[in-house]
Design a protein around this nucleic acid. Structure first.
Length: 394
DNA sequence: TCTGGGGTCCTAGGACCC
DNA sequence: TCTGGGGTCCTAGGACCC
């Protein structure tokens, strides 16, 4: 759905969400430097989120914990409690529904809200935003920033401008003043690689991009360049889509191992554990997968993905494990592994899947045969030993 | 002393078909 | 004699976001 009608879009961004939820849950943490981080002993000790008090000392997301503690020795560190955050998130989105049915959650702590029609000129948008912000603070004890703009991109940029507990209105006629002076790397959608590229053609600020020749930027940067040019000029007609959240594309699970592993039986154990994690997620969402992807990150951090389309949709632990194991046998080069992951892609609704299963069940043999042929080829390539290791548990 | 885990979207090349 | 072009599917990788 596209619209040329003038719209009023909110972007709601919860401030340091995980840390704030912890504080709401345990008020004695308030006002203290707090970091949510994984286990150092298991090499997962990096900062996931930190409170503003910690940020003031230079603590940043993805920073190794030892580094964070060096910057902020009094840092309080808590392991993540994702159930807690998910519950808070659910409550927030429910509350947003009261303001407009057009709520599009974009992550656990962020949402777009189209309040164009919901507002009906009853009150100025900024008043609505203030009510919303106050309600989230009072009911859940959680701070947020809100951006108000005529489209998603500008609303997103606006919510970033005042933190925590800010409300920012960004009108299109104001972008030269407020948006264009910002570094182009601040743009949503511009990461380090794109920033480098843009800098390389003389674009440093968002305004430089906005004033660049549109044809030329397409020539130099491809489609992404054109899209960014539009955004920089305040053009973005993407609709707020409440359904976007429900049609997810993939479900996965991965883990960085406490130590690098270089034996196949141990890797298989990890795969089984991952399959046990992915399978219930599929079941809960009532979907099956027709394409399983294995992720291997080696000790040197080189990461590869290998996937295979399946003839029949699958869901159980054993099925996922088997599919992942074959991918491992086929593609693991024997070097130490740092991380393993299984991702279920090409998801199909269970109802549709059952129909397909009936239709194609005769292909069961074909699939087994294909796997058998793969193994034979691998034997030719690597000899017997690699293959035998893969069957240790049979 | 480094760098998690959950995702989305886009691109590009090769296979295959007409 | 030796050469086409379009479309779709599949796989792998990269960039980005929270």
């Amino acid at each position: 759905m596209r619209t040329s009608k003038r719209r009023i879009i909110f972007h709601i961004d919860m401030n340091s969400f995980y840390a704030s939820v912890e504080m709401a849950n345990n008020p004695s943490l308030k006002g203290k430097p707090l970091a949510i981080a994984g286990n150092v002993e298991e090499r997962k000790g990096i900062v996931i989120t930190s409170s503003y008090e910690a940020r003031a000392k230079g603590v940043k997301t993805t920073m190794p914990l030892w580094q964070a503690k060096r910057l902020c020795p009094e840092l309080i560190v808590k392991p993540p409690q994702f159930e807690l955050y998910r519950n808070a998130s659910r409550t927030i989105f429910e509350l947003l529904q009261d303001y407009s049915p057009l709520v599009e959650p974009v992550s656990i702590d962020e949402a777009y809200l189209d309040i164009t029609t919901a507002l009906q000129n009853q009150e100025p948008p900024i008043k609505t935003a203030q009510r919303l912000q106050q309600q989230l603070k009072q009911k859940l004890d959680l701070p947020c920033s809100i951006g108000i703009a005529p489209n998603k991109f500008l609303a997103k940029m606006a919510s970033d401008m005042k933190k925590p507990m800010g409300i920012t209105v960004l009108r299109k006629r104001e972008i030269q003043q407020t948006l264009w002076p910002l570094d182009v790397g601040e743009m949503h959608g511009v990461g380090s690689k794109t920033k480098e590229k843009l800098n390389g053609i003389g674009i440093a600020a968002i305004g430089d991009l906005a004033r660049f020749d549109r044809k030329l930027i397409k020539q130099k940067m491809g489609n992404i360049g054109e899209k960014l040019w539009d955004r920089a000029n305040g053009i973005d007609d993407r609709a707020v889509d409440p359904e976007a959240w429900s049609d997810f594309k993939s479900i996965g699970s991965s883990t960085t191992l406490p130590k690098d592993i270089d034996t196949e039986p141990k890797l298989n154990e990890v795969l089984y554990y991952l399959a046990e994690s992915v399978s219930p997620k599929l079941r809960r969402k009532k979907v099956l997968t027709q394409n399983v992807q294995l992720t291997i990150r080696y000790g040197n951090r080189k990461t590869i993905t290998r996937s295979r389309k399946l003839d029949n949709p699958i869901q159980t632990v054993e099925e996922l494990y088997t599919a992942a194991k074959f991918l491992l046998i086929a593609h693991w080069d024997g070097k130490p592994v740092r991380l393993l992951g299984i991702t279920a892609m090409d998801l199909v609704q269970k109802k549709a899947a059952v129909k397909q299963l009936d239709l194609f069940s005769y292909q069961d043999d074909t699939q087994d045969e294909k796997l058998y042929n793969t193994i034979e080829k691998l034997k030719d390539k690597y000899g017997d030993t690699v293959i035998k290791k893969g069957h240790h548990e049979n």
